[in-house]
Design a protein around this nucleic acid. Structure first.
Length: 462
RNA sequence: GGCGGGUUGGCGGAGAGGUUACGCAGCGGAUUGCAAAUCCGUGUAGACCGGUUCGAUUCCGGUACCCGCCUCCA
């Protein structure tokens, strides 16, 4: 069996992956808070852990891997956004969840027909959260105060271990919320009271709603148990979100191990800078798709940088990815689906998800002309569906334009035949200047529209 | 201030204690009436200073610079 090695944030080292139960490998990844379209950064962990899921299914068998990625549909940002838009909360969360599914499907992440994937919603697990909070209070790890329930950070000796912090260090430069009901400024909220106009559930502490971190602890427990294999997410979640998850889960279920391997992807940048609304370089996956950037291209760009390094999204990379994919799609048009995933691809991914090396292998397969293996490998990486996507086909143009181009090419061929090279070259240069890319071969000329196609220039050549 | 990560050839971006990364661009060649496309060939780079070693870009220490998190943004 292929040995998978993964970098475990918990131990800060690359370790051999040994599942608790090879017949049921279990992975949890923090999913979106559904209040708005997913931005490009949101998509990175989705794609990264999709690759890991594919690898796990390949190695352990499709029926032996459970992947849980939650939907957080109760959160103050959701309340605020629904109020701004004047719509009901469940309408906002439902619409946003649909958007998320559509946008991620465009990136090759579609689990609508995947039996091993689970997508729990926080609002469906409120009971589990309340039960866990009660356990924490009973164990002395949490306390109720003024309608709130807070986690007593000092009661968990290992708090801060994942992110390499000590509570005392954090207090120093701390920008933590100080509240009169807190025993310690580092204590974080498990439950908070809701006013009448806020969503709330009845609880032993009055009507209220959960804090941000408890839902992942409750949902992973419900679907994966006290101990499971892999927990993933963006590195920004390492602290405090994952730290708090560990504290909650390990204190509520001291005999469980919670997650054994912690994987974190690095952040995304845009043209060398952090993506932020203030810099004006903030955009969603949908924005890119609407601009005509294919989902496969976005996925390819993601995969070209190792997940533990910051990834810089640039126009140049997108353009290069598009060219490369198009070339490979043309090379695999006759594919019958009989090819096998190249073992080098699996080796690369098994080495801490070295997707960049996997892409290098694709280049190698392409150069060697092994198109069947190339197609199978592309599919495995989620870069090719049943057939090549439409955007990679001949640029769609109307019949009149096609006829005009064919006519001009015929005129050029005629001029060449009669050795009127001045006219042939003039036509060639004119066609190129109009943005039509002509490729000659022994059997004739083929053509394609370039990005700067200009019909007016073409018509002027008539 | 605390914690974590990074610094590789023109650009992007990997692996490996001693052998070609790969891609893009460039250059040379083949091909072509000339081109484009294609094919072949071509690049000894590893922030700086020390240390370990027969040998380090790869291990260890330090310096500089950059980035992220600590502001419920993945």
């Amino acid at each position: 069996m292929t040995t998978i090695r993964l970098h475990n944030t918990r131990t800060r080292s690359k370790e051999e992956f040994i599942p608790i139960d090879p017949d049921n490998v279990r992975m949890y990844v923090c999913g979106p808070t559904v209040y708005d379209r997913a931005h490009l950064g949101n998509a990175r962990p989705v794609v990264v852990f999709d690759v890991l899921y594919r690898l796990l299914k390949q190695v352990y068998g499709a029926g032996h891997v459970t992947y849980v990625r939650n939907i957080t549909d109760v959160e103050d940002k959701i309340i605020d956004r629904a109020a701004e838009r004047g719509i009901a909360i469940d309408e906002l969360t439902r619409t946003t969840t649909d958007w998320f599914h559509q946008d991620m499907a465009a990136l090759g992440v579609d689990y609508s027909a995947d039996a091993g994937f689970r997508e729990p919603k926080a609002t469906e697990h409120i009971g589990g959260m309340i039960a866990m909070i009660e356990d924490l209070i009973a164990n002395g790890n949490a306390y109720a105060a003024e309608g709130h329930v807070l986690f007593r950070v000092r009661s968990y000796a290992d708090y801060g271990k994942l992110s390499g912090r000590s509570v005392d260090d954090m207090i120093a430069g701390a920008r933590v919320e100080v509240a009169p009901y807190k025993e310690d400024p580092m204590d974080f909220v498990l439950w908070k009271p809701s006013s009448d106009d806020q969503p709330g559930w009845d609880s032993p502490w009055g009507r209220g709603r959960p804090g941000w971190h408890i839902e992942c602890s409750a949902m992973s427990l419900a679907l994966l148990g006290e101990s499971f294999d892999i927990h993933g997410g963006g590195i920004d979640l390492q602290f405090p979100h994952h730290e708090n998850e560990i504290a909650q889960s390990c204190c509520a279920h001291p005999r469980g191990q919670f997650a054994r391997y912690w994987l974190h992807n690095e952040m995304l940048q845009v043209e060398g800078k952090k993506m932020s609304k203030s810099l004006g370089n903030f955009f969603t996956v949908r924005d890119l798709l609407d601009q005509g950037v294919p989902g496969e291209v976005i996925r390819f760009v993601f995969l070209s940088t190792h997940y533990r390094k910051p990834m810089d999204w640039t126009e140049a990379k997108a353009a290069g990815a598009r060219r490369t994919l198009r070339k490979w799609y043309e090379q695999t048009t006759d594919d019958t689906g009989a090819g096998e995933v190249d073992p080098a691809i699996l080796r690369a991914l098994s080495n801490d998800l070295n997707t960049h090396e996997a892409i290098a292998t694709l280049h190698d397969l392409s150069t060697r002309g092994e198109s069947a293996a190339l197609a199978a490998s592309l599919r495995f990486l989620g870069l090719l569906g049943e057939s090549a996507p439409e955007w990679a086909a001949e640029s769609p143009v109307d019949a009149g334009t096609t006829a005009l181009i064919e006519q001009l090419l015929a005129a050029r061929a005629e001029a060449r035949k009669s050795r009127d090279f001045a006219r042939a070259d003039a036509l060639r240069d004119g066609i190129a200047a109009a943005g039509v890319i002509v490729m000659d071969s022994a059997s004739g000329s083929t053509w394609d529209l370039g990005p700067d196609f200009d019909l007016a220039k073409l018509e002027a050549l008539k």
